[in-house]
């Protein structure tokens, strides 16, 4: 059992690119769910449409990279508009169903063999990261003992955490304004807001677009940091994990999703690595008849499920939230 490996895995994950993807996606969910009370369970859909917007533009259509980024972000906005028009007038649970359905439709279509020529089928698309990687100023990776990153990861975390900081700044600026107050009020009771002369539908739509843009950014960053756009990465389970990250950090707080994603990945990677170490080798710490090395990778998911339940029951405001302010109760 090598504790160094475990600690390295946990810290590297907490600061690594994957945590950034989650942070960006969860910042979007925070705008949707935390501030406005919109139950968007299709954040993976916003990610995939932006990601494939970029990948298809560059790989399939052979157009410039930066145009691809713009296409991806516009695609996310269009998705928000299309989703919003039918559902934002309906009860919250309808938005949940429709967003899940849409993100699954997108995932299935992007992975379909019938559209392999455009989207690359289940293997997805590759070969669009060159311009991104060419900007990498670093000469090599680093290893600081408790964390280690490759050269590419180092570039990705530089870009990624800068993006996260900018997004947080924007969220902070708008949520302290009267605009943010309208969103929070809609979360509490949209009829009350309507009765005061605010166009609730327009505000919900703006929130859906803004959060969807953060989701799109997450999707684009995800495929850039790993160099390929694979449809199965954008499944509904991802959205659920992003919710878990958001709730750990605390919804309706500017830094909640960021801290939450770091803790989420710290725990997931740490626990995963711990049990993988504990079941490794010819005479593992945990005997084979209790847990095989295959099963060891499931422990973190079991604990994650349990943890999400307990968190929601006993600390719905998240680790750092204020109970009186938390958005999640009632309907």
């Amino acid at each position: 059992m090598d504790f160094g490996t475990i600690i390295d895995a946990a810290f590297s994950a907490a600061f690594g690119p994957q945590a950034i993807v989650f942070a960006l996606a969860a910042i979007g969910l925070n705008v949707h769910f935390g501030y406005t009370g919109l139950l968007n369970f299709g954040q993976a859909g916003f990610m995939s449409i932006a990601a494939f917007g970029l990948a298809v533009t560059v790989v399939t259509w052979d157009l410039p990279f930066w145009l691809g980024i713009i296409v991806g972000m516009i695609a996310a906005v269009i998705l928000a508009l299309i989703l919003g028009v039918p559902t934002l007038r309906l009860r919250a649970d309808y938005l949940a169903i429709v967003t899940i359905a849409t993100s699954e439709i997108l995932r299935l279509v992007f992975g379909a063999v019938e559209f392999k020529d455009t989207f690359g089928g289940s293997n997805g698309l590759t070969g669009f990261v060159r311009p991104y990687q060419n900007l990498n100023p670093y000469g090599g990776g680093i290893d600081l003992g408790i964390v280690s990153f490759s050269r590419n990861d180092l570039w990705s975390i530089t870009v990624g955490w800068s993006l996260v900081a900018l997004c947080c700044l924007l969220v902070w600026a708008v949520m302290r304004s009267p605009w943010g107050r309208v969103l929070k009020s809609i979360r509490e009771d949209e009829d009350a807001v309507r009765s005061l002369g605010k166009n609730v539908f327009a505000y919900k739509m703006q929130a859906l677009v803004l959060g969807g843009l953060f989701g799109g950014l997450a999707g684009i960053f995800h495929i850039l940091k790993q160099g390929s756009a694979v449809p199965t990465d954008f499944n509904t389970t991802f959205t659920f994990y992003a919710y878990a990250a958001l709730l750990i950090g605390g919804a309706a707080r500017v830094l909640g999703p960021v801290v939450g994603s770091m803790i989420f990945w710290f725990l997931i990677a740490g626990i995963g690595s711990f049990f993988s170490e504990a079941t490794k080798g010819s005479s593992p710490v945990i005997p084979d008849w209790i847990m095989t090395s295959d099963q060891s990778s499931l422990i973190r998911l079991i604990l994650l499920g349990l943890g999400l339940m307990l968190l929601m029951i006993f600390r719905p405001q998240g680790i750092f939230g204020d109970r009186r302010e938390i958005a999640i109760d009632g309907r």
Binding site: G305, L306, M312, G330
Partner: peptide, 28 residues
């Protein structure tokens, strides 16, 4: 949960956790 007045959305998220928990147990 009903008795302690947990909100419906909170319960929905509890059910997401429960789903993940049970599914992983099944797989285990």
């Amino acid at each position: 949960l009903r008795n302690r007045g947990t909100g419906l959305i909170a319960m929905m998220i509890v059910s997401i956790g429960l789903a993940l928990f049970m599914r992983s147990i099944f797989q285990y």
